[in-house]
């Protein structure tokens, strides 16, 4: 092979990120007759998301998959993508992310800080795990819920009536077990694979966030590739994105059965009041023209 690109992500090889990147490698190889391929590094062995994003600029990794909330620390206008209830559901998210106008708008923001968008993966629909059943938003009152440190997420859970609480991810399991926190938010995948259900067996299927994960390269590294390679890579990215999101959706649905089997108690609270509580948070974080534009574009896809 003439070109081997290093791709970094933080999940296990068989989880959707790993599957999606390997699909990207497979398509790229096919389209370039084996002249280019991607070497996938799982489990954050080349660095976590923040370091991988930096790595695409420093030349230490070529391709990085990153939760949007991490990327938004570098490209603030992208924070729109991780607002609560930004997407109707996983299907609408898939349609929105397939829309060329949406992709162009995201690329325009990435351009400003020197990133190239290859693909957009899904990191799943986020629900709420607790140690007591959540039948309605009122049950969230006063609960200490661990969230990511993103200000919009903190505000969202405070708006739900909970107390958004920062806890290091590595300490979350123990914190749930002993009751330092009463719950946390996660996708089916993490909830299951990290065994959080052992210590927080109530799973309120709220879908408060569709976590999207852009797959990026450094713009300079991308531009340095020959033209036919750039095209092959972009096409591989598109195809892998569609595949990964479909894989995620399928595995997400299959996970519900696994969780049921593991003894998880699921509730399906009415999301209307959650959405109403999140609406002001959405507005608060629509500050710049770039953010408003992406927001309108995403909303316009039905």
């Amino acid at each position: 092979q003439d070109i081997t690109l290093k791709a970094s992500h933080n999940a296990n090889a068989e989880e959707p990120y790993g599957v999606g990147l390997r699909k990207m490698a497979e398509v790229l190889e096919a389209k370039t007759d084996g002249a280019a391929t991607i070497n996938v590094f799982d489990n954050a062995t080349l660095g976590d998301e923040m370091e991988s994003i930096q790595g695409t600029q420093m030349g230490t990794v070529d391709i990085a998959v990153t939760a949007n909330s991490t990327l938004a620390n570098f490209v603030p206008d992208l924070s729109v993508l991780s607002l609560p209830f930004m997407f109707e559901n996983a299907e609408q998210m898939d349609r929105a992310l397939s829309d060329p106008a949406v992709r162009d708008a995201i690329q325009a923001e990435l351009d400003k800080q020197g990133f190239h968008l290859l693909s957009i993966f899904s990191a799943g629909t986020r629900h709420i795990m607790t140690k007591k059943p959540i039948e309605s938003m009122a049950d969230m009152q006063g609960l200490k819920i661990r969230t990511m440190q993103t200000p919009a997420h903190v505000d969202t859970f405070n708006a739900f009536g909970a107390n958004a609480t920062p806890i290091a991810y590595t300490e979350l399991y123990g914190a749930l077990e002993t009751g330092v926190v009463d719950g946390a938010e996660a996708a089916n995948t993490n909830f299951y694979s990290q065994k959080f259900y052992e210590v927080a067996p109530d799973w309120a299927v709220v879908g408060w966030l569709e976590l999207v994960s852009p797959v990026i390269m450094g713009k300079a590294a991308y531009e340095a590739l020959p033209d036919d390679m750039k095209n092959a890579l972009d096409e591989a990215g598109l195809e892998a994105g569609k595949f990964e999101r479909a894989t995620y959706l399928a595995s997400d649905n299959a996970r519900f059965a696994d969780l049921e089997k593991a003894g998880v108690k699921m509730t399906h609270p009415d999301t209307t009041e959650f959405r109403a509580a999140a609406a002001p948070v959405q507005q608060k974080y629509l500050e710049t023209d770039g953010q408003k534009k992406i927001f309108e574009l995403l909303k316009s896809v039905k």
């Binding site: 660095g47 370091e51 930096q54 790595g55 420093m58 030349g59 230490t60 290091a168 300490e171």
Partner: peptide
């Protein structure tokens, strides 16, 4: 690989609450 990885990894090794 650029030597900047050294600085990045040293920082990453220390950037941990636990």
């Amino acid at each position: 690989v650029p030597v900047a990885i050294v600085s990045q990894r040293v920082f990453a090794g220390l950037n941990s609450f636990t």
